[in-house]
Every structure is written in structure tokens, then in C-alpha cells.
Simulated scan of single mutants.
Amino acid sequence: MSNWKDIARNGLWQQNPGLVQLLGLCPVLAISNNVVNALALGLATTLVTALSGAAVASVRHLVPNEIRNPIFIMIIAALVTCVDLAMNAWLHELYLVLGIFIPLITTNCIVMARAEAFAARNGVREALLDGAMMGLGLTVVLVALGALRELAGKGTLLAGADKLFGTAGHALTLQLTPDGYQFLLALLPPGAFLGLALLIAAKNALDARQRRLAAAAANPSVLAATET
């Protein structure tokens, strides 16, 4: 149980692929101009990462070390193809918006890195959990960045939710500013870099605060000295 908690904590926070490892920045920066696009791509990546981790772990003893990377890429590509076809069939409008970034999950550094660094060395259940947590960690970053950019850029949240949730999604869209408001910088690539920098800075600040609290708990005299 402790090992599983460590895997979840690493994926969601300590080794978050979007804020710590800085992997998969191309889709993170390109697709995060609103919440719906970010959520859809994040969930698709999570599904591929989790299933590819489990698949790689299940065949890790059967694949010769010399050809493991091509085999892993074929497994990932097959799963991405399934996701690509499913989105084209059931979420066609959103599929057109995401475009090339769905097939590019095959070459996403997060997916291949977890297959090589974790799934190839651990059991199926652990690899499945690791892939899911890494994917969810990326999804959280994508959604947070998408919300930040969409709110600052257009004054809305969940615009276009009908593309993901159907007709019920119309009721989810929030217009928080007067019609016609637009802050173009937040919607362009520089806004993505600035937004990601703010999220990284916030995480670093929270980690630093947690370390100070842990140090103070271990040595109360330090806390007393800082208070005086």
C-alpha cells in the first residue's frame, strides 16, 4: 500500500510530468488555450499511458533487450490508433480541433519515458497505476493552464464543452466577463509559457513552504527563531 501511495504521489505531485519533469511540453503549450481541449487531450494521454504501461509490463520478460524500444513504440502506436479512431467516431468536432496532437501521443516523451523507466521494470498493476497517475498529473496541469489562459484570454470557462459532453455541455459554459472581452496575449504561445511559469512557481513555493514546516516540526527551535 505504501508503494502504491508513493507511485500516486510521484505522478500527481513530486515527479509531475508537466511541472517537474517538463515532458510533453509541445501539447501542453499548444492545446492549453481552453479547458475543454486541455481536458480531452489529457484524458486521451492518460488512457494511452496507463494501458501502454500495463502492456509493456506484461511482455517485459518476453522482449529481448536489444529491440525493446521498437516493440514499446509499436505497442504505444497501436493504442494511440485506437484512441484516435474512437475520438474521430464519437467526438468528431473535438477530434478536428485537437488535430495532429492525438496521433502525436505516440511520440510523447511521457508515454515512452514511463514505459522505459518504470513499466519495463515493474509488475502490471504497478505500471498501470504509474501510467494513470502520470497521465492524470499531466491532465491536472493541462486543465489548470487551460483555465488560466481561457479565463484571462476570453473571460470564459468550459467554452465549447458541448464538443466533449454533448448538448448538456452548453449549460456548463461560464461567461465571466462582458461579451467582446479578449486578452490576446493569454491565448497566444507566449501566454502558454507565462502561464506554465506561474504554475511551476506556485508548486515550488508550496514545496518550499512544506519543507520549512517539516524542518520546524523536526527542530522547534528553528520555528521559534523565525517567529522572533
Rank of each mutant, 00 (worst) to 15 (best):
E126T: 14
N37T: 07
A54D: 08
T81G: 15
D162R: 01
G11P: 08
H170G: 02
N16I: 03
R149E: 06
G99S: 04
F72D: 02
M133T: 10
L136C: 06
V80N: 01
T46D: 07
L51W: 00
S32Q: 01
W13R: 11
L91D: 03
V56T: 06
A55V: 02
K154C: 12
I76S: 01
M87N: 02
T46C: 07
Q182H: 15
G42Q: 00
A8H: 11
L136E: 10
A159Y: 04
V35F: 08
A202C: 14
L213A: 14
K5E: 15
Q14A: 15
A117L: 09
I71H: 09
L157V: 03
A54C: 10
T81W: 10
N37H: 10
L196F: 02
Q15Y: 07
G180P: 02
A77W: 04
A217G: 12
L142H: 10
R68H: 11
A205W: 05
P220R: 10
M133W: 11
A159H: 02
E116C: 07
A78L: 11
A120N: 00
L51I: 07
R68I: 07
A202N: 12
L39P: 00
L129P: 01
R212H: 14
W90M: 08
S221N: 14
A57M: 05
A159Q: 03
V36L: 05
F165Q: 00
T81F: 12
L148A: 10
L187D: 06
A152E: 01
G11W: 08
C109H: 05
P64L: 05
D162A: 13
G180N: 04
P27Q: 04
G99H: 02
A208Q: 13
L12H: 01
G135D: 05
L174V: 06
A214H: 09
